[in-house]
Design a protein around this nucleic acid. Sequence first.
DNA 1: CTACCTGCAAACTCTTTGCAAGCAG
DNA 2: CTGCTTGCAAAGAGTTTGCAGGTAG
Lengths: 150, 150
Amino acid sequence: MKRECGRWGYRLRGFGYKCTPGRELILEILESTDEHLSPEEIYSKVSIEHPEIGLTTVYRTLDMLVNLGVVSKLDFGEGKSRYELSEHHSHKKHHHHLVCNKCGKIIDYSDFINEEIEFLNKIESKLGKKYNFKISSHFIKFDGMCNDCI
Amino acid sequence: MKRECGRWGYRLRGFGYKCTPGRELILEILESTDEHLSPEEIYSKVSIEHPEIGLTTVYRTLDMLVNLGVVSKLDFGEGKSRYELSEHHSHKKHHHHLVCNKCGKIIDYSDFINEEIEFLNKIESKLGKKYNFKISSHFIKFDGMCNDCI
DNA sequence: CTACCTGCAAACTCTTTGCAAGCAG
DNA sequence: CTGCTTGCAAAGAGTTTGCAGGTAG
């Protein structure tokens, strides 16, 4: 189906990829949520508007977007991955996560984030030197029980 | 096969579980390594001494040990889990991890760990209050490229 | 003895791949 | 047109479960 390209479509082309309904829709879905969606969840949202698009395409598109750095893949240890628009392509600030081990709720927080980043940078630089390790990113989560589950 | 119980066997009994060759062997394997073994890796080590023990038993035993708090389950986002003796049952200090995204090597580090813990405690307490969240543990990893892969 | 453990096979979940058909450019 | 994309079906990887038989205490 031939169609016009939106904002995301232009970016896709800029990266050398074709602009297709599935790709644009997946990006729009990621853009319009504050949740950390799993491939299955994205697929079911995609299906509302484009039921012909398959789960495989969702996986393939997410994979591509992660490689482009547009989307971040998160793993909270649930046995499945979750995705969010990455910092530079989203309106959200850099953040870390609180994970409820009972209901699975995930809370983003940006409080103290500047202190955290500063602290992490210091540590990263020291560790990098000591272990001769080129650190490219960090992942921090706090596990526990949320408000509703206590 | 009836047999004597070693150090771990006594602990198992203390927790109300029977002492069996599989359970003891798995604990001994975890105790004698610095790596973060996956169920499959543990299974192949178990097989050397007790080839009759199945992978299912490894999974079930690890699950039980995690619930007892003897073993920690780690997820570095590889699509499989890894296990290590938990802090209180191991000779190792509390530590965090550096993960090489190319070769998969995982380095434990305990440098600056006291500063880290202190910092994390401060943040945990603030976050706990603000989000009404009972934080029970944290997980920190740094991703990047190791010495050999740069 | 008896309740707890175990191996095996099968089921399940998440993810990836091969391939022929379909569309964007 | 032509090569990138896609849907489908099937395969893979890791993990869990049901059940009959085995064993620790």
